[in-house]
Each structure stands twice: as structure tokens, then as C-alpha cells.
Design a protein around this nucleic acid. Sequence first.
RNA 1: GCGCUCUUAGCUCAGUUGGUUAGAGCGUACGCUUCACACGCGUAAGGUCGCAGGUUCGAAUCCUGCAGGGCGCACCA
Length: 690
Amino acid sequence: MDEKFLKPYDAAATEPRIYEEWEQSGFFNPDNLPTELLLQTEGKAYTIVMPPPNSNGDLHAGHALFITIEDILTRFKRMQGYRALWIPGADHAGFETQVVYEKKLEKEGRSRFSMDPGELYKEILAFTLENKKKMEKQVRALGASCDWSREKFTLDPDVVENVQKTFVKMFDDGLIYRGQRTVNWCPKHQTSLSDVETDSVEENTPFYTFKYGPFNIGTVRPETKFGDKYVVMHPNDARYKSWKHGQTLEVEWINGPITATVIKDSAVDMEFGTGVMTITPWHSQVDFEIAQRHGLEMEQIIDWRGRLLPIAGEFAGMKIAEARAKVVERLAAKGLLISTDEKYQNVVKRCYKCATMIEPQVKDQWFVKMASLGNMAITAVNKGAVRFIPNNYEKIFRYWMENTLDWNISRQIVWGIPIPAWEKNGEWKASLESPGDGWTKDVDTFDTWFSSGQWPLLTTGYPDGKDFSTYYPTDVMETGHDLIFKWVPRMVIFGLYLSDQPPFHTVYLHGLVNDANGKKMSKSKGNVVSPLSLTEKYGTDALRMALIVGNTAGTDLALREDKVKGYKHFANKLWNIARFVLSQERTGEIKRDLKSEFDALAVEISEDIEEFRIYMAAEKLYHYLWHRFADEIIEESKGKVEYSATLYYILENSLKLLHPFMPFVTEEIYQSLPTKDSQFLMIARWPVVE
RNA sequence: GCGCUCUUAGCUCAGUUGGUUAGAGCGUACGCUUCACACGCGUAAGGUCGCAGGUUCGAAUCCUGCAGGGCGCACCA
């Protein structure tokens, strides 16, 4: 017996060494897997694409969870003889990283707005590459058996080129248009954002009712009302029957009299307020749509920095909050303020990164037409080509695909993939190269989801890489349930659009990893638990088990340190089981009843993993090894040599079953078995039961 | 407002298609220097499965309603 068993299991000393051996072996790359292993499946491929972690900080507990789940699936399939490929990646994370970097600049007393864009880009690139290295090290520490030789970064030249080509193709196919539309504008970050990059927050905002000529109009945003010269009511509203569409009237308003025009539009809710409103098309989506329907004039009231423009007269230059109070004061002084409802609740959109109030602005941007693409995705789901685990997320997916809004893919930030579009005299062309003299390149970059949406294609070598036919479509997309409407639909859409095939057949969604009290981890609350520190303290195997056991798909998990500690004890228990078994001389026959009991367990475990009941497989193994094998079978065997062959049988096969969950301690024990059928447990055959 | 989800032992959670006395980990109490392991072993206490109905031979599990928590979506100015 190895001397190492005389001491308790030392995860900290073992894990880095084992990982190094695995990586050196080359078996993370499925091209190197032994033929005799692959024979089991005749070399079928099994592919998982790792959701690329953002390269702008440390890994968090959520990363540890998804790395564990994906590693379990990959190791399981590898041992079953699949050409198991798990492709790691790193995300430049456009806007997110730029926000992180802007915070850093702020701390240093600098601002991106006074920097040369090229210089800024270089700085963020250096910052990102450094974080990428750190991230890769952390992914390794968590035991990920991914193929580093195939790692992709979202700014790799081939990725950039293919993403740009997709834009050109979509432009040529009429799926992308340049449009002047209402966008979500963040006045702090000076960029537009997609709808999923904003948070809707319910807030208490005073609701004012003003006298507007003969009408009473309500608003929560008096500061935008300077240019309001259209008064809108529902065509069927009997109260305003005498007012005709297009009729004009003189009304006294904030800065003096203006000419108002009556507009009848069914977007007005007759039940709400007085049933009459004035519109500010430049700063409201609904108002914009009304204005478009009737061909009304629109004017910008608030500038890009969130200050009032000259149209506001003496209020020009004021910030919104300040102007709001002043405008109300003015209208009140003029006797036009009728009432103030202080208790009014409304929903305000805020930038999901800085919580700044989003200012709707009309802007020329690139938009993807989503309706037909969404239908493609629904068709694929209807055909059963994509399934969701847990299944209830299919509903959410459908909802999003049935209610698509055209997707704004332009971002006014440098940190991203440049949009290959060119303008000359108001005409736009999509092309990787300049179309000729006099054409000016769009300075905007892509929304990061435009590139990450193509990730399964880009990582497997689309369109003509050597891996593409082997590893695409991939098998499982394992990601957080919060990405069900952000990332997943975009991947499905791009997959169908570019390759006619969904990029994966199964979407497995995990929940959030919360703190010990089930509260969301956040830096501001100071309750963030670092997975790396838990790994150092208790071992990666212990952390992995703590993340897996009791964690069903789609539900959130409370991560408690004592749970991790519990599985550290389990790793040591396993260590001592091995010590005991290896101290026996291996003789006799395998006991038939104990073997069939174990084999039945092996079947169950296989089925559980296959059906994504990973938590249950882990718990069953834990229970069997501790409370059946150790507590009963080993105890019973003491002093009885005829048990030894059975003990060896159970130990060896248990190591195999447990390996995907606790790869390090099982590998370390396996290395000391007197008989082993492969160099590494990682490439040992999964127990097959006839 | 619409949609999803949760409510099971002190805590965190399982309970796979409804089926014998509802499980685990941690915690708690008591005992054990048992020759693999004190990162251990043994024993025990602890639950009207949110509430109210219904379906069923039988429900924590299915249906309805109610209460409370979480999340997402929404153009009510």
C-alpha cells in the first residue's frame, strides 16, 4: 500500500499535481483519446461549449457551479467512450468590461471621454488579457477537463471576421436595417442599450396633472414637456367627441402660448387619468410610435448627457431632476398645476450596470428584424429539436420568441467588435472592406450578444473548419436560467439562420448560487463567497459536491461553508475506505449479491446523469459509499478474507462512478490500485452492466 | 396587470411517472481512545409536508381557491 495513505487526504497538495498530469496527458483533447475507449461508442462526438466567462474579474460561485456541471457531463461521456469535447472560452464582454474599466479610470481620476478611443481600446485589451489569464487559471483549479487547445476568445481574429460576415449576410438578406428609433440611452455610459440591458424598477414618482388649454393632462415627466404640441385622445372617447383630429388650438404653456394640435389615437387608455395626454416623441417609445403613425414632428428636448436643450428656454442646461421641480414650480405659478399625486407608482427603466435612469432617445442604429427569426426558433422547439431542462423554461423561451422586439445591436463604446458598415451621403453599405472613396466607417461596435449568440458556431469552426462537421451541432448548452431570454434564444436563432440546425439539442439551466441565507450575492452587500477560497480551504472536490448535491436544475442554491466542509470529510472518508481496502490481500471470489446490488446502483447512477438528475446521482453515491459500503459491508468484512475481492470490485467501480463528481481524490486513489485498466481514471471505462 | 417559481425537521434542501412507518446534510442530546477513518463510530430527539377544499382505494406528490416569499415581463402618459 502506498505510504501516502498513512496521512489524511491532502487536497491542496494533490489537486494541482493531478490537474497538471491530466493536462500533460493530452486527453482533454478528444482527438487524443485511446481508440479502445472510443470503441464503446464507435467514436461518437459529445460536445459542450462553455459559456465564456467574462474576462474582467475573478470567477464567482456561479462559475464554479456551471464548470462543475459541465465537467461532470463531459467526464461521464468521456468514460463512456464518446469523443468528449468541452470547449473553453473567454468573453471580452463588451459593455460589461467597459463599465468595469471605466470604474477603474474613475478611481484614477480619469475619464474615457477625454481619451483617444484607440488608446482606450489598447488599455482595456491589456486589462482583459490579464484577467483572461487569471480566469483560465481559476477554471483549471476547479478541475475543468476542457480542451484548452481549442480555447476561443471573443476577439480572436477569426471570430471577429465571422461575426462581421454574419452582419453582412443579414444585411444582404434584409434582416438588418438602419433605423431611427427609440433606444434605451444611458446618459452616464453614453451608449444605447438593448432591452435586456435595462432593469425595470418600480418606483414612487409624483404624478402631476396640468391644465393644457381646455384639457387636463397627466405626467410624471414635466421636464420633457416643453415641446409638447400634440394633445392625444382615444377616437372612441365620448368625452372628447367634439374635438376633431387635426384641429388646432392655442394653449398657454410653460414658456408661453403654443399652438396645439388634436390627435386621435387608440394607444391612449381611456381609463387612465383624464384620457388625454400630450406627447414627447423623442423621449418616449409610445409617443414615438404615435408620432410615427400620424407623421408628426419630433424634437429632442434632452441632450445626450441628460441636460435640457435650448428649447427649454431659461431651463436650458439643467439636469432632469433639477428641471422637474422648477418646471412644476413654474406651471404652478401660472395656475396650471391642478394636482400632484405623491403616491403614484410607476416603472422606471434603469441601466443594469449603473442604475442611471434610462433616457429614451431617438437615434440612428442598426436593428435586427426579430419576428421571422423568432418564428424559426419556435418551429425548432415545436419539432422537439431543442428541449429545456427544467421544462418550464420552454414557456419563457416561447414567450420571448413570440413577442420579439427588433434588436438594437449598435453600441457607442470602443470595447467591442466593430460594425462593418459604411456611410456616404446618407447611404449605408455593409462590407468588411471600404466600398471605395468617400465612405465613412461606422464607429459603433456590436452588442456583445451579437457575437456570443454565434458562440456554438464560432467555437466549432463555422463555416468550414475541420471540427465543424464532427462537433456541431453541440449536445448540451448548460447555462444560468437568467440567460433564458438573453443568450439562449440568440444562439438558437443564429444557429438556425446560419447552419439550418439548432446549435444544441438540450438546454440545461442552473439556478443562481446565493449566500448561506439564500440571499443573492453582491459586492455591495459584501456577502460574496469566493469559490477559490473554498477550494483552497476544503478542496475542489468538496466544493463541487456541495454545489451539486441537493441542487436541482433551475432552482437557486444556498451555498453554506459547512456543507462544503461536510464533503471535505467525505473525501477523507473515501480516502480511508481506500486505505482499508488496499491493506487487504486481494483473494477469493466476488460475492454475487453484493455485486448485483452495486451494479444496480451503477445503472441508476448512469440513468440519473443521463437524465440530468445530477444532484441525485451524487447523493446516492455519497449515501452508498458512506452508509452502505463503509458502515455495513466493510464492517461486516472485517476479519473475513473472503470479502476482499468484493471490496476491491466495489472500490474500483465506485471510483469510476464518483470520478465525474470528485475527480481529484478519485484519480489519486485510482493511481494506487494494484489493477487498473487505464493510465488515468479520467479515461477509464465507465462501469457497464450487462 | 400578465407569466413563472417556491412554501417539507432548528437551518439548507431532496422526495424522479400519486403507493408500505416522509429522507439527507449540518446542527442538537447522550454514549464510545471499536485494531480504515475523531475529517470518526453508535444511539436518540425533532415534521398536522403554508392554509382550506376537491379528485382517488390511496396525495407532500394531481386539481381549485387563499395567504406569504422569490424572479421575470408590461407603452398605462
